[in-house]
């Protein structure tokens, strides 16, 4: 039986935590199909050995085999090289199912691989099952206003899973760690990475954060954002800042933080909507969050219609108190 491939993600040599979700999802599928799970990532000749070793940690979630795919010409950001190498690897090993993460890099990579293989791709899947040997997945459409159940015809079945939705399950096994080389020649020329400019304080992308603290126009001025940044800091390293479109359009916050139909779709375990009214386009991006907390001084704000817990009040009084109470709880 052909394997299920889990496409892992590594940044600066470190395995990204979403990779464990990808392997868990792949393990669930493989258990039904009765096959093995391979986890893989592309890297250059220099780093591929280290990368393959790092991937071995995925044995905890049920990877039977991990592979560093060595691709000539690879360097950070070279999605064109990764796509060609990965497609070659999949063709060579004849995987039945390939699971990507629907992260920024995953969304850039997966469609290229799919096209090279001449196969359709289901993006941003939130549920998956195997029915009659075929993958049937659930994914939000119309910005989360409906859920589609979609069957994938033919093999390999390619899908990407939404971060923070699939549980990381322990299913430890002995793992075989390998370096394989793949031919990355089959790609268009003329793609060059010229540089990267980090934006301050955005280490964790809002779409991958476990906790999101979003601010809206009710924050009144960009200089007030320290109030939310402090709450985020109190919540720890897995928390990130988000924003409504109103504040992004006003230039108070970068578009990278925008949550909603024309921003990011987020599914954190805990979402704070601070001084956000709750317009339909905002809800589209965050209504599938685990627990939603809203703070708004208007008791009739639509955000309270989706919030699990609400406080009616002034954000400038509530937010600092909240940060303080959370710090007390955590004992620091």
């Amino acid at each position: 039986m052909a394997d299920v491939l889990a496409v892992a993600e590594v940044t600066d040599g470190a395995l990204k935590s979403v990779s464990r979700e990808v392997v868990s999802a792949a393990r669930g599928i493989a258990d039904v199909l009765g096959c093995a799970v391979e986890a893989a990532v592309c890297a250059g000749s220099e780093e591929v050995g280290g990368v393959a070793e790092g991937l071995a940690a995925l044995a905890a979630q049920g990877a039977d085999r991990v592979a560093g795919i060595e691709a000539a010409g690879w360097e950070p950001g070279r999605v064109d090289v990764s796509a060609a190498a990965l497609a070659g690897h999949i063709r060579g090993r004849g995987h039945a199912v390939v699971v990507f993460a629907a992260t920024g890099p995953g969304r850039d990579l997966a469609p290229r691989v799919a096209a090279k293989l001449g196969r359709p791709l289901l993006t941003d899947v939130t549920g998956v099952e195997v029915d009659g040997g075929e993958i049937v997945a659930t994914r939000p459409v119309f910005a989360g206003k409906a859920l589609a159940r979609v069957r994938v015809k033919g093999t390999p079945a390619l899908l990407s899973i939404r971060p923070n939705v699939f549980a990381v399950e322990d299913s430890p096994r002995e793992v075989v760690s390998d370096v394989v080389s793949a031919d990355a020649a089959e790609r268009p020329d003329g793609y060059r990475v010229r540089g990267f400019e980090a934006s301050e304080g955005a280490a964790l992308d809002v779409s991958e954060a476990e906790i999101v603290v979003s601010g809206g126009r009710g924050m009144q001025d960009p200089s007030n954002w320290h109030v939310l940044a402090d709450l985020r800091d109190a919540l720890g390293e897995t928390a990130a800042l988000g924003a409504s479109r109103a504040v992004v359009d006003a230039g108070w916050r970068p578009h990278a933080e925008q949550v909603g139909q024309t921003g990011k779709t987020v599914t954190p375990k805990l979402y704070f909507a601070m001084a956000i009214s709750g317009a339909i386009q905002h809800l589209a991006g965050m209504r599938t969050s685990g627990v939603i907390v809203a703070v708004n001084r208007d008791a009739d704000a639509p955000i309270f219609g989706v919030a699990d817990y609400g406080i009616v009040g002034d954000v400038f009084q509530v937010a600092p108190r909240l940060a303080e109470a959370i710090r007390e709880l955590r004992g620091d």
């Binding site: 206003k145 859920l147 817990y309 609400g310 108190r321």
Partner: peptide
């Protein structure tokens, strides 16, 4: 190669509650 078998409306979120007013809450 993708067949939509069904569309559903998302499950309604359970009724939320207002915990209280202001910082006291």
């Amino acid at each position: 190669g993708l067949v939509v078998e069904r569309l559903d409306l998302p499950p309604a979120r359970p009724e939320g509650r207002i915990v209280g007013e202001g910082a006291e809450a």
